[in-house]
Simulated scan of single mutants.
Amino acid sequence: MVEATDFKNAMSLLTGAVNVITTAGATGRYGFTASAVCSVTDTPPTLLVCMNTSSRSHVHFVENKILTVNVLGAQQQAISSAFASQLSTEERFSHGTWSTLSTGAPVLNDALASFDCQIEQIQEIGTHSIFMCRVVAIQQNDQNDQGLVYFNRAYHHVGQKQAEGV
């Protein structure tokens, strides 16, 4: 049997894009930092998002049935840290400038990309929920050219800065 510690140590070597996942509804706005996000299919456009069921905001994502995946750029490490911390919801959303697209879930205006989604299916596996999310709107930001990733328990930047005047 594979021990949880061995699994976590090995998974720390799997590079993952850093995302802030958000939702909104009658009880307010909520969000968390996640690297467990991936494309499922482009027809229809669908993402998979994993969330720990012990998270204080888990129930709100389940009830709201909407979320936005905000893909963070290299300069947004502080936003990632805020949404991964014990800060209150209000304090978390004081970082960054937020708007909405189709669903009403918060969109980080200067994220590399934001995928506005409806949660169509939820599967419970161990300590996590897997949200199958149909993408209903996308916002891209051409001002950012470097992504934020998490590898070996640390943040790193990927991509190439474009030369001035190019």
Rank of each mutant, 00 (worst) to 15 (best):
V49H: 03
W98V: 08
L148V: 00
G96P: 00
D116I: 00
P45L: 02
S55A: 15
D110W: 04
A82F: 07
Q121Y: 10
V40N: 07
Q123S: 12
L14V: 12
A26C: 14
L47W: 04
P45F: 01
S57A: 12
S99I: 06
F32R: 03
M11Y: 04
R153Q: 04
N109F: 08
P45K: 00
A82D: 08
N152M: 03
V18T: 00
N52I: 04
C50I: 02
L112M: 10
V37I: 10
G31C: 03
Q139I: 09
N52V: 00
A82M: 08
A26N: 14
D42M: 14
G28W: 04
V59M: 10
T15H: 09
S39K: 07
N109V: 14
K161G: 15
E3P: 05
H60L: 13
E63M: 13
V71N: 12
N152A: 04
S88M: 06
S114W: 00
V2N: 13
P106D: 02
E124F: 08
V18A: 02
S55D: 15
N9R: 13
L67W: 01
S85C: 04
L108M: 02
H157T: 14
I79N: 07
L72W: 00
S99M: 11
A105R: 01
L48D: 03
E3T: 09
S12G: 05
K8Q: 14
P44Y: 12
E63S: 15
Y155G: 02
A26K: 15
R92D: 03
T46K: 08
I125N: 10
F93E: 09
H60F: 12
N52D: 11
D110I: 04
G28E: 04
A36C: 03
F93V: 01
A17V: 13
D6G: 15
F32T: 01
A4D: 10
A163E: 15
S85V: 02
A105T: 05
E3H: 13
I21N: 10
I79Y: 01
G73H: 11
A111G: 12
I79M: 05
T5N: 14
T27I: 11
K161T: 13
H60Y: 13
G104P: 07
G25H: 07
N9E: 13
D142F: 05
S55K: 11
T89W: 13
T46C: 06
A105H: 05
Q143K: 07
N144G: 14
T22K: 05
L87W: 08
Q160M: 15
S54G: 15
V49G: 00
A17D: 11
V135I: 07
T103A: 00
C38W: 03
F93G: 00
A105Y: 04
V166N: 15
L72Q: 03
R92K: 10
S35Y: 03
T100G: 05
